[in-house]
Design a protein around this nucleic acid. Structure first.
Lengths: 150, 150
DNA sequence: CTATTTGCAAATAATTTGCAGTGCG
DNA sequence: CGCACTGCAAATTATTTGCAAATAG
C-alpha cells in the first residue's frame, strides 16, 4: 500500500528541513530510508525497510537502517506502532479493559470503562475487515514521574 | 500494586480448572508463575516474574518461566500488553490517528477519526497522572484473512 | 509407571556498539 | 579538510530449543 505522491513529497521536504535544522548530515542512505518508511502504509520493521532500500542501494547495511530509524524516531520524524517495548509484558486481567501508559517510565495500569468499551466504530475502521475488540490506550505521565520531575 | 485476595483466589481457581480441563499437568512452578502474574497489577515481563518467583522457589529457571507464560497465554489465562510484536514497526504518519490491527496476520492500518480523537477521558484514567494522548486500537480480522479462511 | 515437564546450556532473532575507512558540509 | 556517518563484525538482550533427569497423575 502506497502513500500518494503529494503527501510523500511533503513528508520528504519536512524531513529535509528538520534534519538541516538539527545540524545533522543529510546522507543518501538516510534519505532513502526515510523515503521508504514515508511512502509505505504498511508499518514496516527495520528488516523490511532494509530489504526495500537495498534493491535501490545494494551497499546499505542493516545497522545503518537501525541507526537511521532510531535517529528519525528521536527527531520525531517517525513514530512506532505501539509504545516501544523492551520485553513482552503479561496481564491476568481478562475482563475488557483499557490501559494508561506512562510514556516516561513505562508504568501500565488497567482501568475499566463501559463507556470506552462501547465507543462507536467508525466506517473508516470497518472498511479494513471484521472488528473484534476495541482498546483505548491513554498515554501520559504518571503521578510518580510528575513528582520526581518537580 | 497488588490484586485483592478474593480476586486472586478466583483467578487461581479458574487457572486450575482450565489447566485440568486441558489435560495439562499442574506443576508447582506453573502455579507459582501464574499466581505471580495474577497477583500483580504491574504487567510484569518474564524476567520480573522470574525474579519474584525465585525468592520463594530458588530452583526455578528462567526458561520455565518463559514456557509457562507462553502456555498461559495460549490457554487464554493471561494476555499481553499490546499485540505481540516480533519487531518494532515504524510509522511516518504524524497526524493524530488510530490503528486497525489484524490479529491473524499482523496487518496494521492507520485511520483518522476526530470522534475518536476526542473521546471523553474517564476519571478512572485521570487518577493515574496527566493524560497526553488517546489512541484507539481496533483489533479484528482483515479482509484478506477473512477471504483466505473461507 | 510413563508421558510431561523441568533445568541446564547452547541456539536464535532483533538490535546495539566499537572501530577504521569514507563522504557531507 | 574535519568530524559525523557508514559498513563490517562482534556484543547484547529477549526468547526459544534440544536433551537427560525429575515428577505429576
Amino acid at each position: 500500500m502506497t502513500v500518494e505522491n503529494s503527501e510523500l513529497e511533503r513528508r520528504v521536504e519536512h524531513f529535509k528541513s528538520v534534519v538541516k535544522d538539527a545540524g545533522i548530515k543529510l546522507t543518501h542512505q538516510r534519505l532513502e530510508i526515510f523515503r521508504e518508511v514515508a511512502s509505505s502504509e504498511d508499518h514496516p520493521d527495520a528488516e523490511t525497510v532494509f530489504n526495500a532500500v537495498r534493491t535501490r542501494m545494494p551497499t546499505v547495511s542493516l545497522d545503518t537502517v537501525y541507526r537511521a530509524l532510531r535517529l528519525l524516531n528521536d527527531l520525531g520524524l517517525v513514530g512506532t506502532l505501539g509504545p516501544r517495548q523492551e520485553a513482552v509484558r503479561f496481564d491476568a486481567n481478562l475482563t475488557h479493559h483499557h490501559h494508561f501508559i506512562c510514556v516516561r517510565c513505562g508504568l501500565a495500569r488497567d482501568f475499566e470503562s463501559t463507556a470506552l468499551d462501547n465507543i462507536p466504530i467508525t466506517d473508516a475502521a470497518k472498511q479494513f475487515g471484521r472488528v473484534e475488540t476495541t482498546h483505548v490506550d491513554i498515554r501520559g505521565i504518571c503521578k510518580q514521574c510528575l513528582e520526581t520531575s518537580r
